[in-house]
Design a binder for these strands. Structure first.
Length: 672
DNA sequence: TTAGGGTTAG
């Protein structure tokens, strides 16, 4: 159907009639000029089809402007209210008009204006336009209004693949990954084919889904991708690498990456990030070097992952080189890069350098503040972490859930129980934030470490949400420190149900039994571990010597200096034994002769790294080590004595925190 | 019209 509307009256150049919804034509209003330059001819073409609206209003005015140009110009300048006033003046807004306004509502993050635009759009007969439905879904998604997203999706009858894709994206962003997969099945049942965009959203939905079978679903989508011939698609393959990375399937990710026929900076960065995040920092740095050898220049995103890898390795010299590169390439004004630098320096033991980067930041977002809070935390400066936390609030930055995890973690490392409790209580009272499982886990850790195990158990009992594996894991960890067998058995029973394949839980329980000399129980847990085909994560320590990073493992046959290392450790051990060192053989999980247990203890990766540092570093140079697990009691007391005996400063960062050994004392005050 | 990688914690 064609509708030819009456041409506008020439009186449009006169002042507007008084019935206009807004008094927008005050001379100071930015819309004033636009209004008077607008002279549409308003020929509107539309069809009755529910899928197509060809509505056009393209005529330039005498002044070289048309209506949509005016709307666009107002939107660009951020004058959304005025653009809306203009909308109500126009008898024939077009699809383009609404597209511009929807975009502007998203940018201005204004739900009230969004609702106005949406209502007017329906009144003007665009309610079934799939193009605009897609835009509306994106808009409501950005405004965090998932119910409005659902409403738009429910109402639109012509659901093009664009509409489905936008809906999947919105649901995923809102954390409803599980639902995406249900709708995907529905979409398949009614015979709508996916396109390349659908697969990337489906994969992201698998990651967002909290179901225990998310990985399997991801693999299923991978199968669909292969069946539909997208296995060479750059974006889909990159997303797939990221999905496997997030599930910790480094092997799968690496296979895909190496089989990709075409790679770009994003795919390289995704793989580097996968290694950095999954305990393979050396591989991350190696891949970064390889990428650079192809003259592919890293961007800020790549640099963040590489800095993470340096942080994991405590590779200070490498980190400094990267900092130089970041400055040369002008990436030192990008907030995530600066936050990553703060963390890198702190995790490499150079807290002061991290603080310097933090102090020089012109602008600080909550992540930057959190980086600094956790940096003080891992170094054991709990009071300082609380001070930074308070300073952040004074500066007007609202704490995020991670700010609380960081500051509570800092209290935990420093044994600040009362302060931690107070901060925990302030979450709801002062910041209107309900504690999550992570926060409860921090509280259990705080109380547990401080040997208030029963109080920690009561916290779990009174939780308003289901205690997850993190909470029970914290309790089990505390039972390990204070050797509480009864509570450990309770915690591990739950953990074995919740995380049947996490080897770490079985090892912790076996450690507790070993410490209590309950050898039959140790054997039982070990058998359970073997029956499930699980393996203890092997301990490994990294050390940087003359800008090169070395990895030492307890069963190390790769290092050419291994014999020299063993000999040095044996000598040191014998000499220190004469000066009071007693090997803590109780932590060895096997019921062996004392001598054999001592030999096992001397083979711990952290001691090998210390010896390697003593052999290869210059005299007096600080030894910096990073370890993938928690430092064991024996390595801790051994390193304390070595620092005194060899007059060396030794920095060891374990999975939890920093240990700064000097003159026979550790900065953690033996509380870790 | 839609798309891929990143920052903070335990």
């Amino acid at each position: 159907m064609w509708t030819l509307q009456a041409p506008p009256s020439p009186c449009l150049l006169q002042p507007p009639p008084s019935y206009l919804p807004f008094n927008f034509l005050h001379k100071s209003s930015p819309v004033f000029a636009s209004y008077y330059s607008y002279r549409p001819t308003s020929i509107r073409f539309s069809t009755t089809s529910n899928s197509t609206h060809i509505v056009s209003n393209p005529e330039p005015t005498t002044f070289g402007h048309n209506y949509n140009d005016s709307i666009q110009s107002l939107c660009k300048k951020g004058h959304l209210k005025e653009a809306l006033q203009l909308l109500f003046q126009e008898p024939n807004p077009t699809q383009r008009t609404y597209e511009l306004l929807i975009l502007s509502c998203s940018q201005k993050h204004s739900l009230s204006h969004a609702l106005t635009v949406h209502r007017k759009l329906i009144d003007d007969g665009f309610g079934q336009d799939p193009f605009l439905a897609t835009k509306l879904i994106n808009m409501y998604s950005q405004l965090d209004c998932i119910d409005h997203v659902r409403h738009v999706f429910d109402k639109i009858s012509n659901r093009t693949i664009f509409v489905w894709n936008a809906f999947f994206r919105a649901l995923t962003l809102a954390g409803h990954g599980e639902e995406v997969l249900d709708f995907y099945r529905r979409m398949n049942r009614i015979g709508i084919s996916s396109d390349r965009f659908t697969y990337t959203y489906l994969l992201k939905a698998c990651v967002a889904s909290e179901s225990s079978s998310s990985l399997e679903k991801g693999r299923e989508i991978h199968g669909h991708i292969l069946r539909h011939g997208y296995e060479r698609h750059l974006h889909i393959m990159t997303t797939l690498i990221d999905v496997y990375a997030r599930f910790g399937c480094v092997g799968n990710a690496s296979c895909l990456f190496h089989e990709m026929p075409e790679k770009n900076l994003v795919s390289w960065s995704a793989m580097i990030s996968c290694y950095a995040k999954n305990g393979k920092p050396l591989e991350a740095l190696e891949l970064f070097r390889e990428m650079m050898s192809y003259d592919l220049l890293p961007n800020s995103v790549t640099m963040v992952s590489v800095l993470q890898a340096c942080a994991a390795l405590a590779a200070l010299e490498q980190g400094k080189l990267l900092h130089g590169y970041i400055i040369r390439k002008g990436l030192d004004c990008i907030l995530p890069v600066l936050s990553a630098l703060v963390t890198m320096y702190a995790r490499c033991g150079a807290l002061e350098l991290g603080r310097r980067v933090f102090d020089q930041m012109g602008k600080r977002d909550v992540v930057a503040w959190n980086s600094m809070i956790s940096s003080y935390g891992i170094h054991g400066f709990g009071a300082k972490a609380i001070e930074i936390f308070r300073e952040m609030i004074r500066y007007g930055v609202s704490p995020s859930p991670i700010s609380f995890v960081s500051v509570l973690g800092a209290c935990s490392h420093a044994g600040l129980v009362a302060e931690g409790k107070h901060l925990f209580d302030s979450m709801l009272k002062e910041h209107n934030m309900y504690p999550s499982v992570e926060h409860y886990a921090c509280m259990v850790d705080l109380l547990g470490r401080a040997n208030k195990l029963e109080e920690a158990a009561i916290i779990i009992q009174d939780m308003r949400i289901e205690p997850g594996p993190k909470v029970w894991g914290s309790l089990l960890g505390s039972c390990r420190i204070h050797c509480n067998v009864d509570l450990a058995e309770r915690a591990s029973r739950r953990l074995f149900e919740l995380e049947p394949t996490n080897a770490g839980n079985y090892v912790l329980l076996a450690d507790i039994y070993a410490e209590a000399r309950m050898w039959d129980e140790v054997k039982r847990v070990r058998k359970l571990l073997e029956a499930k085909g699980l393996r203890k994560v092997p301990g490994c320590s990294w050390i940087e010597v003359k800008r090169k990073i070395y990895c030492l493992q307890s069963v190390d046959e790769i290092n050419p200096q291994i014999e020299q290392i063993h000999a040095l450790l044996l000598n040191l051990s014998m000499e220190m034994k004469q000066n009071g060192y007693v090997p803590n053989t109780r932590i060895v999980l096997y019921d062996l002769e004392e001598e054999e247990k001592e030999r096992i203890l001397l083979g711990h990766s952290e001691k090998l790294a210390v010896a390697f540092g003593l052999i290869n570093n210059s005299k007096g140079e600080t030894i910096r080590i990073s370890k993938n697990l928690r430092l064991c009691e024996d390595c801790h007391s051994f390193t304390k004595l070595i620092s005194k005996y060899t007059n060396r400063e030794i920095l060891v960062r374990d999975i939890n925190r920093f240990h700064h050994f000097k003159d026979g004392v550790c900065s953690c005050g033996d509380y870790w």
